[in-house]
Nucleic acid binder design. Structure first.
Lengths: 344, 344
DNA sequence: GTTAGCACTCATTTCTGTTGAGTGCTAACT
DNA sequence: AGTTAGCACTCAACAGAAATGAGTGCTAAC
């Protein structure tokens, strides 16, 4: 017996099976495929091919007398070789663009609408991570006393993103002192990227005149806030969308999916991307979160200015419409970058 | 036939039925009640009483041969007359307290954990609205240029809450000007409540030296941000929790519930409270949101300092455990006020 | 006023056969 | 050698039918 290989016809059949399964969620039988336009062989022949594809690991059979279902390996092959980029219709592109633009120019709010647009357009669940602030620059720092021994440190960056954190005030520093320190920090740190900030701090700490406790705490806050984007900056849209699909008609599954979505930690793991590929696709177990091993995650990237950016993504059933999702993400990534560009 | 009245025994039976239905979600039959401790009459007698209660509108019968189910009117009566406040166990109170305290002192983050604690403790869905800022005081205002013609206006209030909004810069104002204006605004507005702010602005606008366009826009932003708490300040916890209850085993219902939760507008309507009652209970249709007419909403209030505060609430099935929910909300309201107190 | 007894209702469960989509294999055909 | 028709076989899904049982309402006795 000769070694099985994926010839031209097997490609075609595999693609037909996946396409059909993506829209119907039902195991695909040989007749269905042979009836398809462009296929001119009998069901029996298809069956033989299917049998080969199964042996090769591209198809699974739920039980003897059901049709075939694509395996994870099949989807992997599909997105690697069979994806054809679909252009969005102009009218749809227009509508998405509009939805993003009409809102206030606050970054937070743009991202929130983007999540809605994304989940509406795909009918899956969308995830958007606010821009990572690492390579952004500080515009302004202000220490504002809010209580006896507590001040609020407010950091404004060039992308118009504001971060704040409580910081404790050492003995003997009054409001005027804080004000002076704010001015000094703003002056020294303005327009510097994070790496330079650290160095500047090192220099400042050598200066005996300045309160070290306060400075240390301040640096700490800046690093924490700007480097490892903290937990407030993830927006999820359309979490209920997936319930429309038959794979979630089991309430138990629906519940565990939604519960997983509630953990910021899980989401963060999901959208952490390996490569710097334009579009990142993780199919089923590939996403690394066991609770979501029957979901696929597709992520893309958007830019804020040319220094930094964030991630946008879609999470849906493994049999998701990858073609469409990729097109939408690609378009949205660009649109988002565009809309946020004038914020920098 | 004498007019039907709710006598002592009917009270008891009604309460028993509601208690049972709350835990089992199954129509309650006469045998079940007569077997209960403290009841010493036969099922037949209970049936007669039930029949009366049904005529009075407190019970419904899904179909002839099923047990009885409490009506909305019954729940109303229950919460108005039959509620007995349950004290939380010390160990539980302790645990909740701990969960709130161990987190960072950022208001946002405290509220986020509070939502989680609340939904965990009740196993329903929790909603927390960040403090309304109306009666808070401004601590600091800073205009930070972020782009050619755009500045970010950052407002820090005494509760340590930071609000920001983009604002356009009129021609001919450079960074130094903005800085001066920030100083001036901070000086004039610091520690003033919103009502006084409006007046101060009126005075400032009379002063010809100051740029009116900018001031007008600034006032606008302040009012919008501080008065009608904007859409970013609602946190929802445990939205998946309700799926565990049989009333949501129908995926359609689950979906429409979750979809309703996604609309900030809907939520805002839900937590807008009529009276200034300590605890506000709206049963089923009483909550005013048709999509959620089979949910009950219980809300309470927490304080930030003694000037202002926010709302915390629970949304769950009509047959929710009101006793427990009320206790938890009451405790959490106090705890939250306590935790946030040192922020002012 | 209370309760036992009984006929009746009706959702739920269980069992049964039936249907039909689909497979795998074999033998004939090109 | 690859393709296809034919056929026996598998198995989930559907549809009744019968059994179950929780529950009611009514009546008559206590």
């Amino acid at each position: 017996m000769s070694t099985l290989r994926l010839d031209e016809r097997k490609y075609m059949i595999l693609q037909a099976i996946i396409d059909d399964y993506i829209t119907t969620a039902m195991p695909v039988g040989s007749r269905t495929i042979s009836r398809k336009a462009g296929v001119s062989v009998s069901p029996a022949t298809i069956r033989n091919e299917m049998s080969d594809l199964e042996e090769l690991g591209y198809l699974d059979q739920p039980h003897t007398s059901a049709g075939r279902v694509p395996s994870v390996k099949a989807y992997r092959f599909y997105v690697d070789h069979l994806i054809k980029s679909v252009r969005l219709s102009n009218v749809e592109a227009e509508r998405m663009h509009e939805h993003l633009n009409q809102r206030s120019s606050q970054v937070e709010s743009v991202i929130r609408s983007a999540a809605n647009v994304l989940s509406d357009a795909t009918q899956y669940t969308s995830i958007i991570v606010a821009p990572k602030l690492g390579s952004l620059r500080i515009k302004h720092i202000q220490l504002v006393p809010v209580a006896e021994k507590t001040a609020l440190m407010v950091i404004v960056t060039n992308a118009g993103i504001v971060k704040d954190a409580a910081i404790s005030i050492p003995e003997g520093l009054d409001a005027d002192h804080l004000y002076a320190i704010s001015r000094m920090l703003t002056e020294k740190l303005a327009d510097k990227p994070l790496e330079a900030v650290r160095q500047t701090f090192a220099e400042l700490l050598r200066d005996a005149e300045i309160n070290r406790r306060l400075l240390g705490e301040a640096l700490n806050v800046i690093e924490r806030k700007l480097e490892a984007g903290d937990s407030t900056d993830i927006v999820i849209g359309g979490s209920a969308n997936l319930l429309a699909y038959p794979e979630y008609h089991d309430v138990g599954k629906a519940k565990s999916f939604l519960a997983a979505l509630e953990s910021r930690e899980t989401i963060r793991k999901l959208v952490t991307r390996d490569g710097s590929m334009e579009i990142n696709i993780r199919i089923g177990p590939e996403n690394g979160v066991p609770e979501l091993s029957d979901c696929s995650v597709v992520t893309a990237h958007y830019a804020v200015g040319d220094t930094s950016g964030g991630t946008l993504g879609i999470i849906g059933p493994i049999r998701m419409n990858y073609n469409r999702v990729i097109s939408v993400l690609d378009f949205m990534g660009r649109t988002l970058s565009e809309v946020l560009a004038d914020r920098v």
